[in-house]
C-alpha cells in the first residue's frame, strides 16, 4: 500500500516534473515572444506616431472635424489613438502567438482564427471610424446649406442623411467583420439610401453652391422681387 502510494506519488511527481520540464521551456519561449513582441510593438508605435506627426495627421483630422469627435468621447488625439491601436494589435498578436507555443489544445485553433479575423477587424474599425465621421460631417454640411438656402425643414433632411450614412456604415462594418451575413441583404435594401447618400455627398461637398442654386431655383419662394440679396454684403 505504502509502496504503491510511494510509487504512484513518484510516478506522478515524475510526470509532473516531466510535464513541467516540457512546459517550462515553452513558457520561457512564450515569455520571450511576449517581451520581444512588446519591443516590436513599441517600435511600431513610435514609427507610426512619427509618420503621422510628420504627415500632420492631427491637423488633417482636425480640419475634418474628427478631433472634436474624439474630444467629445474623451479620447486622446487621433495620432495617439492610431499609434496606440497599432501597438496593442501588434502586442496582442505576439501574445497570442506566444500562447500558441504553450501547446494548450483547443486554444491553437482559436488563436489562428483570431489571426484570420484580425485584418477584417482592422477594416471594420476603419470603416466605422470614417463612416461616423462622414455622417456627422455631411449631415452638418447639409444642414448649413439647407438653412442658408432657406429650405424647409433642414433638420429633417440633415437627420435623414446622417441616419442613412450611419446605417450604411454599420452594415459595411458588419460585412467586413463577417458577422451577420444577412445584413448584406439589408445593405441591398439600403441601396436606395446609398443612392441618396451619393446625391447628398455630391450636393453637400462636390457642388454645394451649384446644388444650392439649383435648389433655390426649384424650391424658392416665388416672391423674387423682394429678395434681400439686392444688398451686396461687400
Amino acid at each position: 500500500m505504502w509502496e504503491r502510494f510511494v510509487n504512484e506519488l513518484s510516478t506522478t511527481m515524475q510526470e509532473i516534473a516531466g510535464s513541467i520540464g516540457q512546459f517550462l521551456p515553452r513558457l520561457m519561449v512564450m515569455l520571450l515572444v511576449v517581451v520581444i513582441g512588446w519591443l516590436i510593438a513599441y517600435v511600431l508605435k513610435s514609427i507610426v506616431r512619427s509618420i503621422l506627426r510628420f504627415a500632420k495627421f492631427d491637423r488633417i483630422s482636425q480640419d475634418a472635424g474628427a478631433a472634436q469627435f474624439l474630444k467629445n468621447a474623451a479620447l486622446p488625439s487621433s495620432t495617439e489613438l492610431l499609434s496606440r491601436f497599432v501597438f496593442w494589435v501588434a502586442w496582442v498578436g505576439f501574445m497570442l502567438a506566444g500562447i500558441n507555443f504553450l501547446g494548450i489544445a483547443g486554444l491553437e485553433e482559436q488563436i489562428s482564427n483570431f489571426f484570420v479575423f484580425l485584418p477584417r477587424l482592422f477594416v471594420a474599425l476603419f470603416v466605422l471610424f470614417f463612416g461616423l465621421w462622414a455622417a456627422s460631417f455631411f449631415s452638418r454640411a447639409v444642414l448649413l446649406a439647407a438653412v442658408n438656402a432657406d429650405l424647409p425643414s433642414p433638420r429633417l433632411i440633415s437627420f435623414t442623411i446622417q441616419t442613412l450614412i450611419i446605417l450604411f456604415t454599420i452594415s459595411m462594418a458588419c460585412e467586413a467583420v463577417g458577422i451577420a451575413h444577412r445584413t448584406v441583404l439589408v445593405a441591398f435594401a439600403l441601396i436606395l439610401g446609398a443612392l441618396m447618400l451619393g446625391l447628398a455627398i455630391a450636393f453637400g461637398l462636390g457642388g454645394q453652391d451649384l446644388a444650392r442654386r439649383y435648389l433655390e431655383r426649384r424650391l424658392q419662394h416665388p416672391k423674387k422681387e423682394e429678395r434681400e440679396d439686392e444688398l451686396s454684403p461687400l
Binding site: L144, V147, D150, K223, R227, E228, L231
Partner: peptide, 26 residues
C-alpha cells in the same frame, strides 16, 4: 431710398437660430 425686404432677413435669422441649434451649441 431703397426697397429692401427686411422681413425675410428676420425670418431667416429666426429660422436659422432654431434649425442650427445643435451647431450653434458647439
Amino acid at each position: 431710398p431703397l426697397r429692401i425686404n427686411r422681413k425675410r432677413l428676420h425670418q431667416m435669422f429666426v429660422h436659422g437660430v432654431a434649425e442650427l441649434e445643435p451647431i450653434l451649441r458647439s
